[in-house]
Design a protein around this nucleic acid. Structure first.
Lengths: 169, 169
DNA sequence: ACTTAACGTATCGTGATCGACATGTCAATT
DNA sequence: AATTGACATGTCGATCACGATACGTTAAGT
């Protein structure tokens, strides 16, 4: 049930609409916890009903801007402080590696090269964000940068692994 | 829907029962795709109905040993060759990093130290497996070793990141 | 003989998630 | 004036997944 905390956390940074959340989940937070609109809008309504967020205004095109309430911030802090992070990770690209022996050697190598290519592109994208996007000063920006560095570190590790693996005979 | 391929893939290595799959999913493949018995047993029944696996024998304690069929192997190969790996990853520990700014500096550092500790323990466990467990010779063993190396590479990267982040002021 | 722990399969309710569909608004282009 | 594309919210059915419970078997220890 981390979706609600992902939404709360984003709204804690700055108020936003369901649509802006949806867009935001394409990058940044979406790399850690993907979500579609079919999940986001109902969850926002639940959060509002529970008093963790509040509708600040309604703008053009029936848009609804939400902001977190005191209770919402408290819930976020409780989550961070008192609950253990779930280590369960579903990683399909890794799963495939276990079964690469089912392919011909040439196909196996092609798979690893393609994987390297993907990770290289992702790394480029993350490094571009690190270079170009100016995160806000203060703790918010530092958290964002920390998360970015974590992503860069793992992406680089997988990239180097894939290149090594593709090259090995 | 990768669970079926995780099950198929394991059974392609060697025939097994639902229970042996369940145990296997505690380590190795489970790091890439966790599964509980509430998922495994029904999925095995579906796979059997679809002819992708076949019950080889039934042993003590009503156990049922399954093995993959030709169709099962074909489906695995099709999956590996013709479908794109899903890049969607749910990573709660990473999600939390985005929102660390909500905590006091001391709590933040404590979180990062604890994260480092976890990754250190995991790395130790993976390296122990690499040292001690003898994978089968041939392509199966090489795939397994590749997957292990991927896990070690990412774990080491996150560990170094966490230590750096916890040390930074 | 008794107890315990591991073995082994199965189901059920609840909630999470996906993908598709539906509906309407507004701004800019043609 | 008409079309297009981005903006914006919502719902629905079908799976997927989790956690708990149930039930029975076998081996080993006491």
């Amino acid at each position: 049930m981390s979706l609600r905390h992902a939404l709360l956390g984003y709204l804690a940074e700055e108020p936003g609409t369901g649509y802006s959340l949806l867009k935001h989940f394409d990058g940044s937070v979406g790399y850690a916890w993907p979500a579609r609109q079919g999940q986001i809008y109902p969850e926002l309504n639940r959060l509002r009903e529970e008093g963790l967020i509040r509708q600040r205004e309604s703008g053009a095109r029936n848009s609804k801007t939400y902001e977190v309430t005191e209770a919402g911030i408290a819930e976020l802090r409780r989550w961070l402080r008192e609950t253990e992070p779930s280590r369960a990770v579903r990683n399909e690209p890794l799963l495939r590696v276990f079964f690469l022996w089912l392919l011909e050697p040439a196909e196996r190598e092609a798979y690893l090269r393609k994987e390297a290519e993907y990770q290289r592109a992702l790394l480029g994208e993350l490094e571009r964000i690190e270079r170009e996007e100016q995160p806000p000063r203060g703790p918010k920006g530092r958290s964002y940068r920390l998360a970015l560095e974590r992503g860069i570190a793992t992406t680089r590790a997988v990239l180097e692994w894939a290149e090594r693996a593709a090259g090995a005979r």
